[in-house]
Design a protein around this nucleic acid. Structure first.
Length: 148
DNA sequence: GCATTTGTGGCTT
DNA sequence: AAGCCACAAATGC
């Protein structure tokens, strides 16, 4: 299938996403400069809104790899902007163990779209698959200035 | 207060 | 099936 990877220059950094024309398959947070991307698709619109401080309904996303990841996805989406949830609390809601939460979150192929960055450790920041810097930026962006 | 250990469940290979 | 992990709570120092 013609799944292509598009770039997006956000105020917080560069990121790329894999849009196959129907669903968003994957999202990657980069740390290198990129060209100003062009094109229009639901993902870009969503990102555009997101980085403007707005919250939209999510574009079509690729199905979760496992039922648990689906649950986790919903749990994460339930976290309001600017709020954070500890791994422990999230695990509680999902009826699982904190450690499993971390692993599941790390396995999440759709960061930002699925706000996995809103899940932090109980007594620290925790970790982030695509680089902790992104997590910091995102959290600072969300909690600090709702707008840019 | 910090370092170590254990309980825990799902993910990747 | 085995090992790995982005945690947390309980101990030990």
């Amino acid at each position: 299938m013609g799944a292509d990877t598009f770039r997006y220059s956000s105020p917080l950094g560069e990121l790329s996403y894999c849009w196959d024309g129907e669903v968003c398959r994957e999202v990657n947070l980069l740390d290198a400069p990129a060209d100003n991307p062009t094109g229009s698709d639901p993902i870009r619109e969503w990102l555009d809104a997101y980085f403007s401080g707005e919250v939209l309904a999510l574009p079509p996303l690729a199905a979760a790899r496992s039922p648990f990841q689906a649950s986790m996805r919903q749990c994460l989406l339930n976290i309001p902007r600017g709020e954070t949830l500890s791994y422990g609390e999230a695990a509680k809601q999902l009826g699982t163990a904190p450690r499993a939460m971390g692993q599941a979150l790390g396995a999440n192929p759709l960061p930002i779209l699925i706000p996995c960055h809103r899940v932090v450790a109980a007594h620290g920041l925790g970790g982030f698959s695509c680089g902790l810097e992104w997590k910091r930026r995102l959290l600072a962006f969300e909690s600090g200035g709702t707008k840019l």
